[in-house]
Amino acid sequence: MTTERDWITTPLTEELLRGALELERTAHGILPHRLPARARAQSADPQLAMAESQPSGVRLAFRTRATAVELDTLPTKRSYVNVPPRPDGVYELLVDGNPAGRASVKGGNTLTIDMSAGTAQVQPGAAGTLAFTGLPERVKDVEIWLPHNETTELIALRTDAPVEPAPDPGRKVWLHHGSSISHGSDAAGPTTTWPALAASLGGVELINLGLAGSALLDPFTARALRDTPADLISVKIGINIVNADLMRLRAFGPAVHGFLDTIREGHPTTPLLVVSPIWCPIHEDTPGPCAPDFSRISEGLMRFTAAGDPAERASGKLTLGVIRDELARIVAQRADEDPHMRYLDGRELYGEDDFAELPLPDQLHPDAAGHRRIGERFAERAFAPGGPFSADRAGQPGRA
Rank of each mutant, 00 (worst) to 15 (best):
P46F: 06
R223D: 15
G398D: 08
D245N: 15
G184M: 15
F294V: 01
G125T: 00
M302N: 04
A291P: 10
Y350R: 02
L260R: 08
V105A: 14
L93F: 09
F389K: 06
G125R: 03
A379N: 07
L74C: 10
T112K: 10
V83M: 01
R248Y: 04
V122S: 13
A126G: 12
D367K: 07
G178V: 06
L216T: 11
A356Q: 07
K317A: 13
M50L: 12
A394N: 09
P219C: 07
A332W: 14
V90C: 13
F259W: 04
R86H: 08
T159H: 09
S315V: 10
D141G: 11
E92I: 11
S53C: 13
R25H: 14
A166V: 01
R63A: 11
R381W: 15
P281D: 00
G170I: 13
L349S: 01
H283D: 09
L71K: 03
T129V: 14
K106N: 13
A332K: 13
D309I: 00
W194N: 02
A199R: 03
E14Y: 05
K172A: 14
P165L: 06
E357R: 15
N98P: 00
P281S: 01
D72K: 11
M247D: 05
M341P: 00
L260C: 09
T286A: 02
L216F: 13
G202M: 01
L130H: 05
L60E: 01
R223N: 12
N208D: 12
A384K: 11
G253T: 15
W174A: 09
T151Q: 10
H340I: 04
L273E: 04
D96M: 10
R102Q: 14
F252H: 01
T193Q: 04
A100N: 08
Q47K: 05
H177C: 10
G125S: 10
G351C: 03
F378R: 07
V275G: 02
P11Y: 09
D325W: 02
A215M: 15
R329Q: 11
R138I: 03
A37P: 04
P36V: 09
H257N: 09
D96S: 06
L320T: 00
P271N: 09
L31G: 08
P162I: 06
R372H: 13
P11H: 02
L249C: 03
S276F: 00
L349V: 06
E137R: 13
E205V: 02
L206D: 06
V235C: 10
D186N: 14
D261K: 11
Q121V: 15
K140N: 07
G97N: 14
R63C: 05
P55H: 07
I239V: 08
R171C: 09
S276T: 03
I241F: 12
G210L: 11
A103E: 13
L35D: 07
G266Y: 03
L23R: 03
A251I: 07
G321W: 00
D354P: 05
D338W: 06
C280S: 07
R381Q: 14
G125K: 02
P268L: 02
A37I: 08
V90L: 13
D309F: 01
L16F: 03
P219G: 08
